[in-house]
């Protein structure tokens, strides 16, 4: 794996931004009778959530009693979803849901509370497998090998055409 340095504006993300707390309060209100419990849980989640983007992957951890830490490699990312409901959009937020090839249907990691979510998504995309190193296109006429491959292909087609005609 090429361990290129992470751009400064991505590496500097360590905490979710304050609008996430507002969103969590609204979510707690929406849970009506469970409000106190939900608010407490989300409060702890918000205040313990830490991100770290390093050269190989993303580290995310949260929780006090039930402490969780998730680490995933950029190259293992299968697909990236950018999701937002209208409340999140009002607050300028969106979730980045990252999937790996593990067996669960849900996202393996959900990055919440990022204001520059488009930049983060584009960064993650650029580190995904198959995003950077484009495989040679079928027709590359700007290199010797490409031209010769094309010649071979043309010749092959001619031969096939003649052989097919011979069979008829």
């Amino acid at each position: 794996m090429t361990a290129e340095p992470v751009p400064a504006h991505i590496a500097s993300i360590v905490r979710p931004s304050p609008p996430l707390w507002k969103y969590y309060v609204l979510r707690a209100i929406a849970s009506t009778i469970l409000f106190p419990v939900t608010l407490l849980l989300l409060y702890l989640r918000y205040h313990t959530m830490r991100y770290r983007f390093d050269a190989e992957g993303i580290h995310m951890r949260w929780g006090i009693l039930l402490r969780r830490e998730v680490m995933l490699n950029y190259s293992r990312i299968q697909d990236i979803q950018l999701r937002s409901n209208f409340v999140e959009r009002w607050l300028g937020l969106a979730r980045i849901e990252i999937q790996t090839a593990s067996g669960s249907a849900g996202a393996q990691m959900t990055l919440e509370g990022l204001l520059n979510f488009v930049e983060v998504r584009d960064f993650l995309y650029s580190r995904m497998r198959g995003a950077r190193h484009a495989i040679p296109a079928p027709v590359t006429t700007d290199s010797l090998a490409g031209v010769l491959s094309e010649v071979a292909q043309e010749l092959r087609l001619v031969r096939q055409a003649i052989e097919e005609r011979r069979r008829v």
Binding site: D79, Q81, F86, M128, R129, G130
Partner: peptide, 13 residues
Amino acid sequence: IFQINELTMTYSN
């Protein structure tokens, strides 16, 4: 519209 999803996937995957 209410919930917006934007999925990005490379061919490699």
